[in-house]
Amino acid sequence: MLSIPESISIPESISIPLGQPVFVQALRYTALFDQKPFAEALLIYTDNGAYKIMSPGEDHYGSYVSYTDVAANPQHVIFLSWPSEDWDRNVASHTLTFNPDSAAFTQVLVLPGNPVPRSQYGYALPTPDPQSVDMAASWGQVRDTYADIFGQLEILTAAR
Score class of each variant (00 low, 15 high):
residue 83 P to S: 12
residue 136 A to S: 14
residue 18 L to T: 13
residue 120 Q to F: 00
residue 119 S to A: 14
residue 4 I to Q: 09
residue 157 T to V: 15
residue 146 Y to L: 09
residue 145 T to K: 13
residue 90 N to Y: 02
residue 107 Q to H: 04
residue 141 Q to W: 01
residue 78 I to M: 13
residue 29 Y to C: 01
residue 29 Y to V: 02
residue 125 L to V: 11
residue 146 Y to P: 07
residue 140 G to Y: 02
residue 67 Y to G: 15
residue 127 T to E: 03
residue 70 V to Y: 03
residue 124 A to M: 06
residue 17 P to F: 01
residue 7 S to V: 14
residue 154 E to V: 12
residue 155 I to L: 11
residue 21 P to E: 05
residue 3 S to W: 02
residue 73 N to L: 14
residue 117 P to N: 03
residue 100 P to F: 01
residue 66 S to G: 14
residue 149 I to F: 01
residue 15 S to N: 09
residue 134 D to A: 12
residue 3 S to E: 13
residue 10 I to L: 11
residue 68 T to A: 13
residue 62 G to W: 00
residue 22 V to I: 15
residue 42 L to N: 03
residue 28 R to D: 05
residue 14 I to E: 08
residue 68 T to Q: 10
residue 132 S to H: 04
residue 47 D to N: 15
residue 121 Y to I: 00
residue 54 M to Y: 01
residue 158 A to G: 01
residue 36 K to N: 11
residue 144 D to I: 06
residue 69 D to S: 14
residue 38 F to L: 02
residue 116 V to I: 14
residue 2 L to D: 09
residue 114 N to D: 15
residue 50 A to H: 11
residue 154 E to M: 06
residue 153 L to N: 08
residue 114 N to H: 09
residue 97 T to K: 11
residue 154 E to L: 09
residue 70 V to W: 04
residue 116 V to R: 06
residue 113 G to L: 08
residue 57 G to P: 06
residue 24 V to Q: 03
residue 103 A to F: 13
residue 29 Y to S: 03
residue 91 V to H: 03
residue 40 E to C: 04
residue 41 A to P: 01
residue 127 T to V: 15
residue 78 I to G: 10
residue 32 L to Y: 01
residue 10 I to D: 00
residue 42 L to G: 04
residue 61 Y to A: 10
residue 154 E to D: 15
residue 74 P to L: 08
residue 69 D to T: 15
residue 130 P to M: 04
residue 23 F to H: 12
residue 61 Y to I: 09
residue 158 A to P: 00
residue 78 I to Y: 05
residue 39 A to P: 07
residue 14 I to G: 05
residue 125 L to N: 08
residue 136 A to K: 10
residue 125 L to I: 12
residue 15 S to Q: 14
residue 140 G to S: 08
residue 111 L to C: 05
residue 155 I to K: 15
residue 71 A to Y: 05
residue 144 D to L: 13
residue 104 A to E: 15
residue 24 V to H: 03
residue 82 W to T: 14
residue 27 L to H: 06
residue 153 L to P: 10
residue 26 A to W: 01
residue 19 G to T: 09
residue 151 G to C: 02
residue 80 L to Y: 06
residue 53 I to N: 05
residue 7 S to T: 15
residue 128 P to C: 06
residue 30 T to S: 05
residue 34 D to N: 08
residue 3 S to A: 14
residue 131 Q to V: 14
residue 49 G to N: 05
residue 100 P to D: 04
residue 85 E to S: 15
